[in-house]
């Protein structure tokens, strides 16, 4: 009788441990998954009813943003991001006039399972929104910077070395802006 109880207890504990182990493995798998960059772009498109311009379209149109992004991808204008690591989506001359708090909630819900929100700033009652998320990617870090103003928006995902991530943490707002600018502003170089 006593042995039976002990065996049952041991079985229960084993089941509990297995469940914990499964939960642990599932968490790791969730963290490893997914292209959240595209999810964020889609979320912006759906929420605001806008459409992003791809880099080839922008380059064809001779817009500075496209050519610069292309050059960064080739590594010529690279300063902060690692070579070939930039993902960029640009929304230009469109209306981002919906109430932002719902968007903020949706964005955080979509990303916080796998990304850490580093800094979020909202200015002008939602007229300017900046969100910076990060996550580990091997020995580097993925950083996702989302900026939205009344007419334009940018989503940039870059790989950062630990040193550049440290710069981002030291001055999150300044370095976040620098990442977006590096990806979108023409460099006379």
């Amino acid at each position: 009788m006593k042995t039976n109880r002990i065996t049952t207890l041991a079985l229960l504990l084993r089941t509990f441990c297995l469940s914990l182990l499964c939960l642990f493995v599932a968490t790791v798998l969730v963290q490893a998954k997914g292209d959240d960059f595209n999810s964020v772009v889609k979320l912006i498109e759906q929420f605001y009813g806008v459409k992003h311009q791809g880099i080839p379209f922008l380059a064809k149109a001779g817009m500075k943003v496209g050519t610069t992004a292309a050059r960064i991808k080739g590594g010529t204008a690279r300063r902060i991001a690692e070579a070939g690591s930039i993902k960029l989506a640009v929304f230009e001359d469109q209306a981002f006039d919906r109430e932002f708090s719902q968007f903020r909630t949706s964005l955080n819900t979509a990303l916080t399972a796998t990304w850490t929100p580093l800094i979020q700033t909202i200015a002008g009652g939602g007229e300017e929104q900046t969100y910076i998320f990060m996550r580990e990617a091997g020995d580097k870090f993925n950083v996702l910077v989302i900026t939205i103003d009344q007419h334009d928006a940018t989503v940039v995902q870059v790989n950062l070395s630990p040193k550049n991530l440290a710069l981002l943490i030291k001055d999150p707002e300044g370095t976040g802006k620098a990442i977006t600018e590096e990806a979108t502003i023409n460099d006379p170089e």
């Binding site: 109430e99 932002f100 708090s101 903020r104 850490t116 929100p117 580093l118 800094i119 979020q120 700033t121 909202i122 200015a123 002008g124 009652g125 939602g126 990060m134 630990p162 040193k163 991530l165 440290a166 710069l167 943490i169 030291k170 999150p172």
Partner: peptide, 24 residues
Amino acid sequence: TSKATQTVDVNIDERLIRLASKVF
């Protein structure tokens, strides 16, 4: 957040602080 003209929300955990301390 919906009433404010400017909102700042910062989350820096221990791991990030250790990283940041390297650049000071």
